[in-house]
């Protein structure tokens, strides 16, 4: 039993990492109506950007900011330079998903010669370990959880309380209508990619902080859990993604404790298949905030 409680504790940390990542991913889907398969690789690239700073002697929490900026700018550029022009040209969904997978491979293979194949780890002081029953978490892990909660609250306020948030919701529900109502959709979309890119960068860095090591090859694994969480919550719905992250985060950690850590992502996959068979629109589709089209 205590094994599972410990796993539950780790699951909360995984959830936090995954929630930050999945909310960014699902918001990109909502605002641009496309699945950005390069998301996992941008996460890794940002994690390496943070690593570069961290390795130069900068504190990991400051480096995290660098990773966020890197993720933000590179996501913005990918959309502006690659995705948006193709969408403007009228490329169908089928083409967009191929383009994003191609982008994903290109990022990974530009990264590889630069950073190498080997796993790296951050220089960080994980702080004292806190115990609650059989749950044992380090200071860094608790800080990641705190950061995730703060970021979720920020996203919530952004969407619900600000003009920008309203404009983003309107744009994702119906871009043409939003444009006709005088919303500068292009600027809204650009801002959305900057924000979601920052989430992506933060997620990549905290994922690296939470695991002992990371490498370029970690991107695909990240992507699977993110897709599972986002689809589970109804693609395009940030609140759904948060709940999806909780489910996937806990299930992967608990199944890792029960079976074998190698199959972590298999549990995420099993949930994904179940959702796709039983409820392809996602668990929370009814109350979609950033409604998914189609």
């Amino acid at each position: 039993m205590s094994l599972y409680l410990a796993a539950f504790g780790f699951g909360l940390v995984s959830t936090s990492v995954l929630a930050i990542a999945a909310v960014g991913f699902t918001m990109q889907f909502g605002i641009s109506n496309m699945i950005n398969l390069a998301y996992g690789e941008v996460m890794i690239a940002a994690a390496y950007a943070s690593y570069g700073l961290n390795n130069a002697g900068i504190n990991i929490w400051v480096s995290l900011l660098g990773g966020a900026v890197f993720g933000s700018v590179s996501s913005y550029l990918i959309n502006r330079v690659l995705y948006a022009p193709f969408q403007k040209k009228g490329t169908a969904l089928i083409g967009m998903v191929i383009i994003s997978l191609a982008a994903s491979l290109m990022i990974a293979n530009v990264l590889l010669p630069i950073v190498g194949y080997y796993s790296v780890s951050y220089r960080q002081n994980v702080g004292p370990t806190f115990h609650a029953g059989s749950i044992a978490l380090t200071g860094v892990q608790l800080a990641i959880m705190g950061l995730a909660i703060v970021l979720m609250l920020v996203i919530h306020s952004l969407l619900k309380l600000t003009r920008l948030g309203k404009a983003m919701r309107a744009t994702s529900a119906n871009p043409t209508l939003a444009r006709n109502c005088g919303i500068p959709t292009r600027r809204v979309i650009d801002t959305a990619w900057l924000i979601t890119g920052a989430l992506c960068g933060v997620a990549g860095t905290v994922a690296g902080m939470n695991s002992d090591t990371f490498a370029v090859a970690s991107g695909a694994g990240f992507l699977i859990s993110i897709i599972a969480a986002a689809v589970l919550g109804g693609a395009g719905n940030p609140y759904g993604a948060m709940i999806g992250a909780l489910l996937i985060g806990e299930v992967t950690e608990i199944s890792a404790a029960a079976f074998s850590p190698e199959y972590k992502e298999v549990a995420a996959f099993a949930i994904l298949v179940l959702v796709m068979v039983l409820r392809p629109q996602g668990l929370l589709a009814k109350r979609g905030t950033l409604a998914a089209a189609g």
């Binding site: 699977i224 074998s260 796709m276």
Partner: peptide, 24 residues
């Protein structure tokens, strides 16, 4: 039932997972 890009990611995830399972 899935939209075409959902089909694509489902296939992609299958490909990654199948490799993972056979590897382990």
């Amino acid at each position: 039932h899935l939209r075409v890009d959902y089909q694509a990611i489902a296939m992609l995830v299958l490909s990654v997972i199948a490799n993972l399972v056979i590897t382990n």
